[in-house]
Amino acid sequence: MNKTELLKQVIARLEDDLLQAQQAALTAYETATHEENIAENKYDTLGLEASYLATGQARRAAAIRQTLANWKLLVLRAFDPLLGIQLGALIELSDDEDRRQCLFLGPDGAAMKLQQDGQSIQVIGPQAPLGLILIGKTVGDEVTLHVASGVQLLEILSVD
């Protein structure tokens, strides 16, 4: 798998999300400020509700913009066993039933699934429960993840 291509996919998805959030904020703002939505009495709250929505969408767009900026600053490096897993790592894990999963560890705020070469890759951040326990680990290490259904033991098979 190619980490550079994965990074491009994450950035493209975040750019799409940002565009959608900006358009949603603009639509809500236009609704809130439209002359037909001026309150005629205290029960006429469409304009007020639209202004709350516009504010929320603007905050969402700002959060996505920050996440996008962080991902654009991500420098992809080769895995260094002395440092262990760091941001930008592509990790393959296996559970006790030999089910495998691939993870791409990057800055927070971009949890998503990507496809590359017919394989599914989960993008996670360092604040995700699994991200927290993987930082600093290396190939062959086993980690324990506490999930709602119990405890899951995972082995790190490879890191790029």
Rank of each mutant, 00 (worst) to 15 (best):
T27R: 13
A21V: 05
A39T: 04
A54H: 14
L82N: 11
H34W: 11
R59W: 00
L26H: 09
G56L: 13
E49P: 13
G47K: 10
E40I: 09
H34R: 12
H34V: 09
Y52T: 10
G47A: 12
Q86E: 15
T67V: 06
K72N: 08
A62G: 14
R59F: 00
G47F: 15
E40A: 13
Y43C: 03
Y52Q: 01
L74E: 14
E30N: 15
A69S: 14
Q20Y: 12
T55N: 07
H34K: 02
A78L: 06
T31V: 15
L87G: 11
L76E: 05
T33A: 09
I85P: 04
L46T: 03
L68D: 05
T45L: 11
L48M: 08
A25H: 04
A28Y: 01
D44H: 13
N70V: 00
L83S: 07
W71S: 04
A54L: 08
G84V: 03
A25C: 13
R77L: 13
D80C: 03
E49C: 14
L90F: 09
Y43M: 03
A62N: 14
A28R: 01
Q23K: 07
A32M: 14
N70K: 05
L26A: 05
L74K: 04
V75F: 13
L82Y: 03
L26Y: 12
P81M: 13
L19F: 04
L68K: 09
